[in-house]
Computed example of a mutant assay.
Amino acid sequence: MKRTRGLTMLVIALLAGAAAVLLASILMRAQAGGTTKVAVAAADIEIGARLSPEMLKLVEWPPNSVPPGSFSDANGLEGRVVKTSLSRGEPFIEAKLAAVGAKGGLSAVVAEGKRAMTVRVNDVVGVAGFALPGNYVDIMVNTQNEGTKRVDQDKTISKIVLERILVLAVAQEADRDATKPKVVNAVTLEVLPAEAELLDLARSVGTLSLVLRNQIDPKPGATEGATKLSLLKDEPARPASAPTVVVKRVAAQRPAAPLAVRNFECVEVIRGTVKTNECF
């Protein structure tokens, strides 16, 4: 009888504990307001891709941490174009999507009011492949000043003409998540219309170079350009055939003091038939 009573109390305790856990869960969910549906990427999506149904899925998301601009209906996302790469499980937000009706490809990535322009590069001009999509670069041109004559001084100058230019793509790739350097022969840049004109003129009058800059550094680099005179610090070049003359400074020597003049007295001495003069 006692054993049966003990088992009964144990069962009641277990049921009471399970009920308490269930009630606490219900209360917590009620306080949190339940969950909501959020559209996320069903797989990794590259920049400029047009969304299709197999790229989308809805997941439960805590309402207190729903990202601003997210979507609760996947039907409104079909056909939209992404402006940045998305990882699997990452929620879709309006800021990462191109405008409704935009076509897929690189054109959807170009910001409003800007243009995409491609320049030819090599392993040196392209910063050894480190100028990747999403990076910012300065553009430097090496050219000659207008009106240079043979009798004039050398007018060669290197000058940064455009600053903080966004790299949209390298070759035919626009993946901004790539970190491995890639040497290519063309780089596509995002520029304003006026900057596109400057860039086109710069590549026609001289040699271009890309200068990789810090991603979060917005400060302009105010420079006047480098010339041969500034490179050599305005010092005239010495002819290679000119001999090097070394001048040594020698201390002046004092003249020796004149010797005192002594007066000698001489006498004539006769020894037999020999006659001599002796002075003392």
Score class of each variant (00 low, 15 high):
170 V>W: 03
119 V>Y: 07
129 G>W: 08
139 I>T: 02
167 V>Y: 01
156 T>N: 13
120 R>G: 13
153 Q>Y: 05
138 D>Q: 06
145 N>E: 15
164 R>K: 15
144 Q>M: 10
125 V>W: 00
172 Q>F: 07
158 S>G: 13
166 L>E: 10
161 V>T: 13
143 T>V: 00
143 T>A: 15
121 V>G: 04
136 Y>M: 09
160 I>D: 02
136 Y>S: 06
119 V>D: 08
169 A>P: 01
156 T>W: 10
170 V>R: 06
164 R>P: 01
172 Q>N: 15
137 V>Q: 05
143 T>W: 12
129 G>Y: 09
153 Q>I: 03
153 Q>C: 05
132 L>C: 08
162 L>S: 02
157 I>C: 11
159 K>S: 07
165 I>F: 02
141 V>H: 04
170 V>N: 03
132 L>E: 08
144 Q>K: 09
147 G>A: 10
162 L>D: 05
128 A>D: 02
119 V>W: 06
143 T>P: 03
152 D>F: 01
145 N>S: 12
170 V>F: 00
135 N>H: 14
120 R>V: 12
159 K>Q: 12
153 Q>L: 09
148 T>S: 09
125 V>C: 03
153 Q>T: 09
164 R>M: 02
168 L>N: 02
168 L>F: 05
129 G>D: 10
139 I>P: 00
148 T>V: 08
136 Y>T: 07
133 P>F: 08
154 D>I: 11
144 Q>F: 10
138 D>R: 06
121 V>H: 05
147 G>L: 02
130 F>D: 00
149 K>N: 02
167 V>F: 04
136 Y>D: 07
152 D>E: 09
170 V>M: 07
147 G>R: 05
159 K>Y: 11
158 S>R: 13
126 G>N: 09
143 T>N: 12
138 D>Y: 06
129 G>A: 11
119 V>H: 07
130 F>W: 07
122 N>T: 04
165 I>P: 05
158 S>W: 03
142 N>V: 06
144 Q>G: 03
138 D>C: 04
141 V>A: 14
131 A>C: 11
122 N>V: 04
170 V>Q: 09
131 A>N: 13
126 G>E: 08
158 S>P: 00
152 D>I: 02
161 V>H: 06
137 V>F: 04
148 T>H: 05
158 S>T: 11
147 G>Y: 04
127 V>H: 05
167 V>K: 00
123 D>Y: 10
163 E>T: 06
149 K>V: 00
156 T>C: 08
169 A>Y: 01
142 N>S: 14
166 L>D: 06
171 A>V: 02
133 P>H: 10
155 K>T: 14
162 L>C: 02
139 I>Q: 01
150 R>E: 15
132 L>N: 07
168 L>W: 02
135 N>G: 10
145 N>Q: 15
160 I>A: 01
155 K>S: 14
150 R>D: 15
144 Q>R: 14
123 D>S: 14
147 G>Q: 04
139 I>S: 01
161 V>F: 14
127 V>K: 02
127 V>E: 04
171 A>E: 15
